[in-house]
Design a protein around this nucleic acid. Structure first.
Lengths: 101, 101
DNA sequence: CAGATAATTAGACAGTTATCTAAATATCTA
DNA sequence: TAGATATTTAGATAACTGTCTAATTATCTG
């Protein structure tokens, strides 16, 4: 049940643009173009952010014709929540197994 | 209830050393020296990490004689949990208040 | 006060990251 | 196949970050 959270996940969350992308994807999947037009940033830069999120396994992608649709991968974020809860949430309670990073 | 999480908080969590510091502080407050001797890293480097954590308001410090004791600031992490939950936690369930945009 | 201890600040440096423009790849349609 | 559209890849660069050593500050004690 360890819920290992790789460093990539935290690094991916460290950028405000990427967090905003995740928040938008919270409304449902969107194409790269749809996402990109919401930001004042070049498309290659946006593509870079998609890549980081994908590498962290925070999002999934699917091609449909010329477009690529991104969506949240909620299970990984469950792991982040678990990590945070493990460190901060159980203050003063029984110390179960603890997972390094 | 918005639970604004500053960028500093996520940037602070992006480093594995800092996450380990937080984890250790989960057992209770510790002095800078006690924490530092757990890591294969110079004391100034550790001090830098303490500073980042403090700036993010993830930890608090208190001086006792020559030593400075650090402890978790759990309320800020509650905000992180809330942010994550807001984005990822309620997928597919009853749609409570969700941030517009 | 002088010396010891605990911790931080200052400054330098290597590695990483976010961003851009230009070029390439993939797909659709006429 | 040629052209249009959607997206990524390549390469460059400025800014940021983590680390170190050396120096400084703060506190305690004889």
């Amino acid at each position: 049940m360890a819920a290992i959270v790789h460093n990539e996940v935290f690094k991916a969350l460290a950028d405000p643009t990427r967090r905003e992308i995740l928040r938008l994807l919270g409304h449902g999947e969107q194409s790269a173009g749809q996402l990109a037009e919401r930001f004042d940033m070049s498309k290659p830069s946006m593509s870079h952010h998609f890549s980081v999120l994908k590498q962290a396994d925070l999002v999934q992608s699917r091609r449909e014709g010329q477009q690529i649709f991104y969506s949240l991968n909620t299970t990984v974020v469950q792991d982040v929540l678990t990590w945070l809860w493990d460190v901060f949430g159980s203050r003063g309670e029984t110390q179960a197994s603890r997972d390094p990073t």
